[in-house]
Simulated scan of single mutants.
Amino acid sequence: MTALLDLVLDAHGGLRRWQDARTVHAEGSIGGHLWSLRGQEGILATTDATVDVQQQRLVFGDFTGPGLRGLFTPDRVAVERPDGEVVAERNAPRAAFAGQGPDTPWDRLHALYFAGYALWNYLTAPYLLTRPGVVVEELEPWREADEDWRRLHVTFPETLATHSTEQVFYYDTAGLLRRHDYAPDVLGGTPAAHFSEHHVRASGLVFPTHRFVVPVQEDGRAASEPVLITIDLTDISVT
């Protein structure tokens, strides 16, 4: 690990606390232009998500209907009834995005896979960066909004479902996550900047409660619009 990653882990609760955590439960709302563009407006307007911290698994409660749950793992997504009856499922879900254009409509399983892996990544960071096969390297600082943010360039292994192999995380002087750049493969590789703010502490771990994603311009600066994704969390708990 780098000295910066050590600082970041401490700022977000400490490596030992992350290692002891089993689940993160978050409630709130996910919106933004992307969902209407893909024909899934409002699908996560009310979000109830439970993340398994130690393995890549996430469950959305009341997903697309009362009592239904949306289950994400890298190799399978499914919509199930409370008794386990499968309503819809897709194996190898990432392959279902092949050949899509910028406005190709999604079904609910496309939305489940994208939101599932993305939110799992977001709610397990920065512990995510300590997983086997993840390579981190500190870059030169970045000036943003009259602040100097330190940066980590991260290379992810193919075994991890994430936006793209290479990503960049930006941290303020306290070590808190403020920006995260990636180019989602399932969206055609268009660069995006994901901003994080309003951090809170829950059971010793620290999470941003407001996030928004906008396009990145050629100079690396973030555009002001369109706002592609918003994430607002009103309740977070850790077990």
Rank of each mutant, 00 (worst) to 15 (best):
F72D: 03
Q56D: 03
Q54Y: 00
V53R: 13
V59W: 05
P141T: 11
H33D: 15
D52A: 14
D103E: 09
E41M: 11
G31H: 05
R150M: 07
R38W: 07
W35K: 05
L119D: 10
L37Q: 08
P102D: 08
P66Q: 04
L129T: 11
A125C: 09
L109D: 00
L128V: 01
L58C: 15
E137L: 05
L37H: 01
G84F: 07
L152K: 02
R151T: 04
P132E: 01
R108Y: 12
P105D: 08
P105H: 03
V53K: 14
G32Q: 00
D75R: 06
Y113K: 05
H33W: 08
F60G: 12
E89Y: 00
R151W: 09
P141H: 10
F60C: 11
Q55F: 05
L128W: 01
P141I: 02
D148K: 13
W142R: 14
A78Q: 08
G99H: 06
I30F: 12
E147Y: 06
R81K: 13
E138Q: 11
R69A: 11
R38C: 03
A49V: 12
G28K: 05
A88V: 10
T47L: 10
P105S: 06
L128E: 03
V77G: 08
D52I: 03
P126T: 09
L109E: 02
T50G: 01
A115Q: 12
R81N: 10
G39V: 10
L34S: 04
A118W: 06
G99Y: 00
F97D: 04
L109V: 03
G99A: 02
G28M: 11
R94K: 14
A92C: 06
Q56G: 03
E138R: 04
G101H: 07
T73E: 09
L119G: 15
A125T: 13
G99N: 00
G101L: 10
G67C: 08
Q54K: 10
T50C: 03
D48R: 11
E80V: 07
F63L: 08
R143I: 04
V136C: 13
A125E: 07
E138F: 03
D62N: 08
R38N: 07
R69Q: 14
W149K: 03
Q100K: 13
A88C: 07
L68K: 02
G32I: 05
L71W: 04
E85Y: 14
